[in-house]
Simulated scan of single mutants.
Amino acid sequence: MKHLNKVLGTAFALMATGASYGCNLKAQEKENTVLVTQSIVEKPNKHFVKIALLLDTSNSMDGLINQAKAQLWDIVNEFTHAKCGNDTRPMLQIALYEYGNDNLSSREGYIRQVLGFSDDLDEISEKLFSLTTNGGEEYCGEVIQTSLKQLDWGKNSDDLKMIFIAGNEPFTQGKLNYREAAANAKEKDVIVNTIFCGNFQQGINTEWKSGASLTGGEYMAIDHNQQIVHINTPYDDVIIKLNSKLNNTYISYGSRGYEKKALQSAQDSNAAELEEVVVVKRAVSKSSRLYKNTEWDLVDAVEDDEAVLTRLKEQDLPKELQGKSKSEIRAYVDDKKAEREKIQKEIQELNAKREAYIAQSQEQEKGELENAMLSAIKSQASKKNMKWD
């Protein structure tokens, strides 16, 4: 689970300036030598860490799903520190598939795309909490192949593209040979990492290690039923209270604004159902650069594009802003932005103290999936000139 948490975090967005500002330092140096002025004026390109999570949702995988739910925010928080060799920050996108569940269509190979590539953290959380287990036939090769065909992996060689597939049945099941899927992954520059839920040697014997090795990925074995150990700190209650205040700085707008703001609150509640400390970790994520909601929050939307205020219709605004002038609306947005930044700074400062407290603790936080994923991510990210600060 530890590996998985770390994986989720790295998938968020990379901002880079022009073709010469990618994660590939050699390409950057070459471009800078030839076109210095062009690099300055070109609009920044986005560079991505793209992670597809393929989770077995058969009867025996409840522990795996619970680990994914609980450790999403650990992974996200780890990714806030990721950057390219030229100090730009990558953007994270996560996709989610389930397979091996009898509730799924047999014609589709008992496979379902739960979520395409997304950087919406609330949506990712919602989809993870929607998963249930039942049955099944687990076709690893076919679910890998399906994700390769259905997802937009892009063609930027600087992007880090990874599949993490987790399960506990032989990797060889199904009509489609996993070796064929691995060959297709290599063509798309996608690394397949395998996480066997069970004994390490058993995973090797059932081809899970081979499934990873063919694309240069990592094979890992975890105890998916291991109880997650969270460490409570003296700073947790204050961060939780600040999280509630943070929610009040969001100004919903547009056709889905009310619905998305409600989703934000619902995911706070989902985190709380697992454990209070999960709310703390989610609050830390919400105070980071990776938590952006330009499609429904007016503060984020204006920061991304000031012209959005000129395009909004009266009915798109929340009731408290209807009938207001553009200058009054802008002043209201600016006030909420200043309030948000203050709260986010407080949360980050408290989290620094929280992390120091945890580091001094004799206990160690345990999350099998998170640790497995993060180890693979950092290793593979280094080949794209990414690092952690």
Rank of each mutant, 00 (worst) to 15 (best):
I329A: 07
P234Y: 05
N385M: 06
I204L: 10
L131W: 09
K337S: 11
E126V: 09
I163Y: 07
I377D: 07
Q150I: 03
W73G: 01
Y258A: 12
A27L: 11
V280Y: 09
D335P: 02
G167L: 03
A82H: 10
T249M: 08
V143Y: 03
L148E: 00
L64A: 13
D305N: 14
D316G: 09
S255N: 11
G100Q: 05
Q380F: 10
Q201P: 05
V143I: 14
K155N: 14
A221P: 06
I204H: 07
R89F: 09
R282N: 01
Q264T: 09
G217S: 03
A266R: 12
Q227D: 15
P170M: 06
A359Q: 13
N5S: 15
S118L: 09
L104V: 00
N351Q: 12
K324H: 04
D297F: 04
S147T: 00
S213N: 14
G367S: 14
I195P: 00
V299N: 02
Y250D: 00
D335F: 09
P170Y: 06
H3C: 07
E31R: 11
D62G: 14
T294K: 05
H47L: 00
K149M: 05
W208R: 11
K188V: 07
A11D: 06
G257T: 01
Y21R: 12
D122I: 00
N243G: 06
L55C: 02
E370A: 15
G203S: 10
G203R: 13
G167E: 05
A262N: 12
D334G: 05
S382M: 06
L317A: 10
K127F: 05
A359W: 03
F129T: 08
S130C: 04
V333D: 01
A27W: 09
N293C: 12
G109H: 03
N77G: 11
W388R: 09
V279N: 04
W296H: 01
K326G: 00
N232F: 05
M91W: 10
V7A: 15
M373N: 08
N156Q: 15
T132W: 04
Q71H: 06
K313F: 07
R179P: 00
F79G: 15
I144C: 11
F200S: 13
A359S: 13
I65T: 02
N193E: 00
S269T: 13
